[in-house]
Design a protein around this nucleic acid. Structure first.
Lengths: 232, 232, 232, 232
DNA sequence: GATGAATGAGGATTCATTCAT
DNA sequence: GATGAATGAATCCTCATTCAT
């Protein structure tokens, strides 16, 4: 989503309802001691594994306390709510996803190679974080705060796509008539949706086939020529 | 998803948890009297509007009873659980979505026109049902039964895409080297994801721009030639 | 308190804190069935006895459920909170207190006799309701809603006092220079405070001595002549 | 309360409940160092302001630690409980109230002037301590220990009243038939109750009007002649 | 068919207090 | 002296579901 992709205001009723849920998670102070830091980490790790295994809503604070070998009260010593933990986990995942998909120095300048590299790195990072990505997806559907976070994360990718597309248009490689913003959103969404089916909903795909096909579709969709290849 | 897109078994722990939720909703008897049919409809309509407004999980049986001007007991007279109502609503939406996106007799045989027609009809139907589609999406992430339903619905579209792609490959219009199954899933996913951002997450897009761009991307991705056009 | 006794606004901090507690108790719908009415009454009676025995704050919802032989959930079926029950009890007590202290037809017109009759009836009603009056007193100190109720109840008495005093001033029996509003508040407060010490804080007094002395003080304070009497 | 004002034993259940709370606060050792004394003072000051702002029950140990810039542990280093702090604050307030209401050397011997001086000084002291007096009042209603303290403080005033009344009776100025003990309790209660309405419940009164009227009522109630005055 | 009273397990949250550092 | 991490009992409140009328 680029800067001019504004979100429509919802009908009053709907919006107000979501806003109730929004309670922006507030950061409690960081622990001062080594012991405190250890405990806090244990809580985060326990939360992460539980969220991944059984989902955010189905995870109880008591589960987290138990798995991290602390007590009920200790959780609340470090976090205001489950939401606050998820928030922190989310920030971490978003950072990792974005970092992982940054195009490396050694990537060839050839457009096709760049597209493929980006996709490969995106899938690799997504596969590692599939469990949490599912949780985020779920939360984004009902909690305005997490919806905002999800859309901001997505926006980072899409802006990059858009910049690449605009560059190709300016250099005359592809059709200047294409709406770069919409194309970036659509192609980014294609890869995101594919990732979700693959890693979250567990539909099986051959990795190399998937990468090759998505890269070809992406390139051709923009009008980047792709050398012909024999059928798989 | 075509027949060979199999779903991987999940790890034991995760799956067992989801299976608890699966409880396949059983249909209760249909009411015999006109009054009974009216009550049942009122329950379904109330459920639908509440699910759309505040989500499935946040809707209480008491909310449904209240909005449909019936009582607790009446709800259980007609349905076993909220899930049963959602199931029924879901079946209806899936049917409508599929019917709406069936390519009409009067559509030209030109591939580009067919793609555009399909997209236009898909978006129109999705826009009407956005609220419930959001609910379905949410449920599919945590409930195996609804995940199955969602994937089956998606599969209907994707098989049709795949058939079209195969036909174009056989007729030599497009590259036979493309993996039709993956391409169908990817392009269908592109449109689905776009729809979700647009109608569920409320990112604003210009309708005609969106349709034109998506159609162009879809066609070009497959290698279907698209007549050049001046920049918007 | 007469109509021109306005309450000062408190400093922002203090007030805001009390307002948080204010949550004006909302009446839940009255039960429709005889059984429902019976249960509701049992909850109120159990609440009353518990509030009197151990105070409002020290009474648990579970105590109320237990003593009224219902379940936890039943309490919430009829009331939103303990506050709602107290509110209802309070309204009842205020009504009874006021009704009881109404001067009867057969009371002589002699001012002294009227004062004594009012005091006697007030003490009798207060003695019956001492337990709840203590609860109200306690709540009025920290909860704006109950403070308002308490002051309104008190106001009913004091306005009546004030009217009597004004009448005596107009008829020339007593000094017209006395501030009737303040005198009414002070003398009403004298009797209220005495009642609290006597029935709430359990300081012992001889009933007839107390009545005679308070009546004499009240009358003389206003300047109503009191016939001399031999020492007790 | 004079020596013959005995407190009635309460019913077993009620009393036992209050006795739980009674735990007579024990004084912890006084700090030896200047730093220690400073910390202790900070805790007391923080407690006082918090008790006044939000009440005793609503004040958390953590609030006190925070406002005094110390830690949880430090609070417990100096005090056994919140009750212990309140106890200390209470002793201070009671002392100040009593000292402030002592009739000064330069007060004329005229009974009316003495009554007015006593009232003026009482109101001045109460106004300064209204916040804590409200807390004490609240606690006295539910905690036997604080009830005892409150009644002892009140008793100091009332004994003085009683002595004055007896003196006036002996000197023949006023009716010897009046029960001095009850009259002292009633008139002292009149002023106490007025103070509570004025400074705790924030009912507005004109200061000079209030003082003049209360003094006149008090004097006349006892039979002390008051020179007539024109209406205000 | 319809009603709504009753149930009680389940889960979040608070907070006084202890104690190792 | 001071710190603040850890504890867990206590309590509130919700809500799907049952069942007598």
């Amino acid at each position: 989503m680029t800067s001019d992709e504004r979100r429509k205001p919802r009908g009053a009723e709907t919006t107000s309802h979501l806003q109730i849920l929004q309670r922006r998670p507030v950061q409690k102070e960081t622990p001062n001691t080594a012991r405190g830091r250890r405990t806090r980490s244990a809580l985060i790790e326990a939360s992460r594994s539980l969220f991944e295994e059984r989902g955010f809503r189905e995870t109880r604070i008591s589960d987290i306390a138990e798995r991290s070998n602390t007590s009920y009260g200790t959780f609340y010593h470090y976090f205001d709510s489950k939401e606050a933990v998820l928030n922190e986990l989310f920030i971490g995942v978003a950072g990792e996803m974005f970092a992982a998909s940054r195009i490396r120095r050694d990537t060839p300048h050839d457009p096709l190679a760049k597209i493929e590299a980006a996709n490969r790195q995106y899938f690799a990072a997504a596969k590692r974080n599939a469990g949490l990505l599912a949780v985020i997806e779920e939360m984004a559907l009902r909690d305005l705060h997490f919806r905002e976070l999800k859309i901001q994360m997505r926006d980072l990718f899409i802006r990059r796509n858009e910049a690449e597309i605009t560059k190709l248009q300016k250099s005359g490689v592809i059709d200047a008539g294409l709406n770069a913003r919409i194309a970036a959103a659509a192609l980014g969404g294609m890869v995101e949706n594919f990732m979700q089916m693959w890693f979250i909903h567990d539909v099986e795909f051959d990795e190399e086939d998937a990468l090759r096909t998505l890269t070809q579709l992406w390139a051709q969709a923009l009008g980047v020529p792709v050398p012909s290849r024999a059928p798989a």
